[in-house]
Amino acid sequence: MAVGIDDNEDLTSLRVDARTQDLLLDAQRECTFAFATKDGWPAGVVMSYLYRDGAFWLTAAAGRAHVLAAQRDPRVTLVVSNAGTDLPGRRMLAVRGHVAVHTDAETKQWFYPAFAQRHAPGHPEAFRQLLDSPNRVVLEVRPVRIAVSHDSTKMPGDGRGGGTGTRPTRK
């Protein structure tokens, strides 16, 4: 049985490896930041991130729902996919982590220029100035574990039962 051709149930062999994880985190600039609301409902917001020294770094206004949730419960999940990148196939990882909310000038001093360079390389100084507002915080997510990952490039064909080549016959 070929995964992706005859079997689409056990996908454990399609997990993202360390090399692919590095490629994905470098190629992508956005993630879904998932958290629990006050009443326990799961919620998520798409955010830009900077991945540095094994942590995800993000920023938001202090009063936003996801910032307030992070202050109540530091357990979050970040979902990163290759959508919108040049990476082939469908790749994703869901990273469980603990978030710390930073308000200190020292963190903002290194973070804003690095984040602005990554997300607005043509005008990093203008973006840095925009970010440097009174109620802005920096979120640091330290991964605990990869909860789920997937790399369809490990499947034959296009990962949807077809693609290039011929379909093997079942034995």
Rank of each mutant, 00 (worst) to 15 (best):
A61M: 09
L11G: 04
L87Q: 13
T107H: 11
R142Y: 03
T20H: 14
A62F: 02
T166S: 07
T59A: 04
G84D: 07
A126W: 02
S81W: 07
V76Q: 04
G97N: 03
N82Y: 08
A70C: 14
H98Q: 07
A60L: 11
A27K: 06
Q21R: 15
M92F: 14
V80T: 06
D39M: 10
L130A: 12
T32M: 12
E106Y: 06
F111Y: 14
I146C: 12
T77R: 15
V79K: 06
V80W: 04
G163Y: 01
S13Y: 00
V138I: 11
V80C: 13
G159H: 03
L58A: 03
M92R: 10
A69K: 01
N82I: 06
A27E: 06
N135L: 02
F35R: 03
D104H: 13
R52W: 00
N82F: 07
P124D: 10
P168H: 08
A69Y: 02
S133G: 10
W41C: 00
K154N: 02
K38W: 01
P168N: 11
L14Q: 15
T85L: 04
H66S: 01
I5V: 15
A61C: 00
G84Y: 10
M1P: 01
M47P: 00
C31Q: 04
D73W: 11
A62N: 09
D17N: 15
R136P: 02
D6K: 09
K171G: 13
F111H: 01
Q129L: 10
M1D: 05
P124T: 02
A62D: 14
G157H: 08
F35I: 02
V76G: 05
R90W: 13
G159C: 11
A2V: 03
I5L: 08
Y51I: 00
A70I: 09
E9C: 02
A55C: 15
H66I: 00
P113A: 14
L24N: 05
L130Y: 15
E30C: 10
V67P: 01
G97M: 03
H123F: 14
E30V: 13
H123T: 15
L78W: 11
L87Y: 09
P121S: 02
E30F: 14
R72I: 03
N82H: 06
I5Y: 04
Y49T: 04
S81E: 11
Y51H: 10
D26C: 13
R96M: 12
D73T: 13
M92E: 15
G97R: 03
D7G: 04
R145W: 03
G161D: 00
A116L: 12
F35T: 04
T12Y: 12
K154I: 07
A61S: 08
